[in-house]
Design a binder for these strands. Structure first.
Lengths: 224, 224
DNA sequence: TCTATTTTGTGCGTCATTGTACAAAACATA
DNA sequence: TATGTTTTGTACAATGACGCACAAAATAGA
């Protein structure tokens, strides 16, 4: 819930009124089509594919796509919004574990699974929005909000620890940013082709370091 | 020196032979033109600008640009290569300081200065290459090499500490990745519009955490 | 069956982008 | 001055991307 992007913008509105009263039925499922377009945009970026290409990837022709979803910006905004909500839900769930170390590892494992599924596209937002953030307000907005949301997600989880007995007076905001930065970087490294193994090694290392700072089990000692 | 991209590719070659024997002199300085094109690509990304736009930004017309630098991929490759070499030099120099904390802070401050100069474009590579990494081999290559190079830069510096008396047996590779990830994330956050102040707060926190792990001065305690 | 409504798919016109050809211009050398 | 060489800038052609118009198709309701 923390990073829903504003859907009140002009570019978000649907032009069609499905199931009003009568009319020819659609030959496509809206959610399924959006999913396919999301995958396409995820892989190529916003400027890397034309409306023709997006329409082909979704299995419908351009006029139908325009009528149902609007122009390219609107499609990207919908796809990005859906992605952000999905990530928020998955990460929040993973972070619910009682044991902090397990919670953090679960969150990173979840992210890595998403970043490396179906090829290795990394994070939809982190890997496609920055390039056009200065020329496209949609990209700018989704990037800002996602970066903030990730840090906030970790901070919220870390603050549960502050209530526990024996907690150290550590700068949790700084630690949250460190964890958020690690997640951001995992997205980039996945896009660059890193294996799941390497990505998990990196995130495990980061979790170990953070646990060390939080005053504890020193599994961050040099293995070799 | 660690992340020079391969210039032997076909798309890297110049088509012209300046100053061979005679011929009309150029009206532009090659390095200066490349710098202007680099700024343009940095801001808009590769697909975010046309060859016309690049030519205008460099102050020369499209045929001259094509003759001197090749197509858009070749121009991007040159700009990215030059950027990577510049970053490598600046960061290496900053990391030369004897005191580790000061060296790390200097490196991050240098990066932040670059990331926030002339607008707030973040890192040329981190912010423009990922989007097209899967559709453009040039972007794929420069992204891979830059990510590796940044980690390597930090690792090289950290390993100097291992030689000092009283050094802890910490996993330096993991710490290097943590520092590299922080730098990657700073690039993204700068692109998203974060102020120098916020960026420096984040990097200072990361440095403090790392110094804490390396066994020492605990300035990472919660200020509030 | 008839009407209203909505989607579908083809097709057209326009504009942007790219590559390249060509003549003129500006230089070095003999 | 004459020749060869290289860059410049205009121009043209081919392709791609985009928006929209339009008729046909497919439904609900009267």
């Amino acid at each position: 819930m923390t990073h829903k992007i504003d859907e009140s913008k002009h570019f978000m509105q649907n032009r069609t009124k499905p199931n009003a009263r009568g009319g020819r039925p659609r030959k496509f499922d809206e959610a399924e089509a959006l999913g396919k377009m999301q995958r396409q945009l995820w892989s190529t970026g916003l400027s890397g594919v034309s409306l023709d290409g997006i329409a082909r990837s979704a299995g419908l022709n351009r006029p139908s796509l325009a009528a149902a979803f609007g122009d390219k910006d609107a499609i990207y905004a919908k796809a990005a919004s859906e992605y952000a909500a999905m990530m928020d839900a998955r990460l929040s769930q993973a972070l619910e574990a009682d044991d902090l170390r397990l919670a953090l590892k679960a969150a990173f494992d979840t992210a890595i699974d998403i970043y490396t599924a179906d090829g290795a596209d990394g994070c939809f937002v982190i890997c496609t929005a920055p390039a056009e953030a200065h020329t496209n307000p949609v990209c700018q907005t989704i990037l800002e909000q996602s970066l903030e949301a990730i840090d906030a997600l970790f901070l919220k989880r870390l603050e549960k620890e502050r209530l526990l007995p024996g907690a150290m007076p550590v700068d949790l905001a700084s630690l949250s940013s460190l964890l958020g930065s690690t997640l951001n970087s995992l997205a980039l490294r996945a896009r660059a082709g890193w294996s799941q193994t390497k990505l998990k090694a990196l995130s495990d290392g980061a979790v170990d370091q953070v646990m060390t700072i939080l005053g504890g089990s020193s599994s961050s000692r040099d293995p070799g």
